[in-house]
Design a protein around this nucleic acid. Structure first.
Lengths: 332, 332
DNA sequence: TGACGCCATTGAAACGATTCAATGAGTAAG
DNA sequence: CTTACTCATTGAATCGTTTCAATGGCGTCA
């Protein structure tokens, strides 16, 4: 079906070893032989068989990226960062979508283990730390993204959500708001919990400022709108004059609810800040102030760490924590 | 680093051939030997090396999925459909994101060729048909998704956009609208062009109904809002009483513009219909009527076709065209 | 008892590349 | 003219599996 290195050797009238040298160490081969072999390669349409190559080499050049939700812009951005860095290093990234099921997550890990990939970049869904340590034992390193290692034995690249929450609420306080609402949930999701904690910390030293929590079942547009409608019906004296949403989707839901009733103006009546700075936020009805996570940079950094661990498996785990960034727009 | 079949054989006191048989044809091996070998496998934490396996077998069990834009919900849905079907067939799907660059598209195709994947599912960005035919020659089949083959030599799974456009506008006419606007662009994108053509066809036999085209530079929220603002400023007697947007993003932009000025009510003043039925549409400020593409089913079907071509490369190419479906919501 | 077949198991070849010691031709030095 | 050395090339071993012909033990039947 497809030509092998043997066919090329026959065609060019040399040995397979020479062909291999042309491919990998052209300097060891005389120029005219190189030409002849290259000609044969072209004639036969030969393409190096990566499978055989890696079997012999014992090491792969593809990195696996496993994300919870391939549709989330945060992860696609992160993937782009990782791909860019991979290209620089001469590696390739293949992606698997766990679609928020532990079953799929495990079967992808099985696949990647059988394929002996160079390493795994993962935003874990289920409890896979044990499994990842086992993979490491096996010679396949991994780096957690968007979540720190609970055991501290794995490298990770994440964002300081506490600082992000603090930045968001500090910004609201500095623009003169005093009754602040936090909209988000479930409160057991680490990211949401940390952002709320940051919000609380921002209040220290500002006794005049209050914080109320509006809990949602999930961080979706729909839930945001539900809470927004609820707030619209509150007495103007009692309702918050600023809202911090756990992510931009929730913020957009709030915004929708306020626009629909037309009773509440943003930011005049209520200032609004979101989190993630997704692509959609600058083009929202009222462009949304948000907390940006350096998603691309995270992907890049994670890939770098992964690669260095693949080269030297004795390295201690690294935990990189990025600082989020405030992006001010019309909604505050 | 990791145990091989040889180690397992030694541990269990059998030959490597027997271990392989336990793995692949347990019926050929006596029950007690099976147990002993399985025990050894567990003790050593042996994981089959897929690389060696495929080298020998000459065929892979992983399918590559290459999409233009991994962030587009349409493609992530399609990916889910493909993954589900792959799981059924005992295959795995890895994904590559071309991020709308021909360069990346080509380098992924190189990678997949070197990896000798079982087949490629691709929503082409650049002009890759030549390349795909060459891959087929080489033994790697491919199926185009969301676009038909221009040469007719490759299988494809796509949607009848002309019919979709026709359905959308027919729905508007049947609900009593007479001055219809089409909002979308660029008009050279096959999908957009076909949808507009369908809209025109719907007008036949309805001489009282007119169609005006509002061209956009791209099918984005921002462009939709730009046109929406423009329409808001038109004289109520002259402006359309219904709009067909080339996709849901544009429709959402229009909706945002109308909500912001509060001068136009949807659907009372202007009915609005989108295309794609993305997740966001049911939860728009005014839930959006849309044309649904069976994205999951498309992914599934494409994978089936691909797999059957991988088994028998002499099959003639199949072109499957799905019919889109009208989903009526509050906006019409 | 010898011939036959059955079954579990073995051992070696094969997949397609890389690597490395060995070979051999050619050149420079003594 | 021999020795030493360089450089291009070769051939065989190797990676971890699968496959398949060959082996050998065992029971059955005439």
């Amino acid at each position: 079906m497809s030509a092998s290195i043997k066919d090329v050797a026959a065609q060019a009238g040399v040995s397979v070893g020479t062909v291999s040298n042309v491919l990998n160490h052209p300097d060891r081969v005389s120029p005219e032989t190189v030409d002849r072999v290259r000609g044969a390669i072209k004639d036969l349409g030969f393409v190096r068989n990566d499978v055989a190559r890696h079997l012999r080499a014992g090491e792969s050049r593809t990195i696996a990226l496993l994300v919870m939700d391939a549709a989330n812009p945060f992860f696609t951005d992160l993937a782009k960062g990782a791909e860019d860095e991979a290209t620089n290093l001469g590696l390739s990234v293949v992606m698997g979508n766990t679609a928020e099921t532990s079953e799929r997550e495990n079967s992808y890990l099985d696949l990647f283990e059988e394929q002996r990939v160079r390493g795994v970049l993962i935003s874990p869904y289920g409890d896979v730390e044990e499994r990842l340590l086992q993979l490491k034992q096996f010679g396949i390193p991994s780096v957690l993204v968007d979540r720190a290692s609970s055991s501290g034995k794995l490298s990770s690249v994440s964002v300081d959500d506490v600082a992000g929450g603090k930045t968001a609420v500090t910004h609201l306080i500095e623009s003169g708001r005093t009754t602040i609402g936090f909209v988000g949930g479930g409160l057991d999701v680490p990211q949401v919990r940390d952002r709320l904690q940051g919000a609380r910390e921002a209040l220290k030293g500002h006794p005049a400022v209050s914080l109320e929590v509006f809990e949602t079942a999930a961080t979706t547009v729909l839930e945001g709108r539900r809470v927004g409608e609820q707030i619209s019906q509150m007495n103007p004296n009692e309702r918050p004059d600023a809202l911090f949403a756990a992510n931009d989707l929730v913020a957009i839901g709030l915004l929708q609810a306020f626009m629909a009733t037309a009773a509440i103006r943003v930011p005049d009546d209520i200032a609004l800040i979101g989190y993630d700075d997704i692509d959609f936020s600058p083009s929202a009805i009222v462009p949304l102030t948000s907390i940006r996570q350096p998603s691309r940079l995270m992907g890049q950094t994670a890939l770098e760490i992964l690669n260095s661990e693949a080269q030297d498996s004795t390295q201690p785990p690294q935990e990189v924590v990025f600082q989020p960034e405030l992006v001010v727009r019309a909604s505050t």
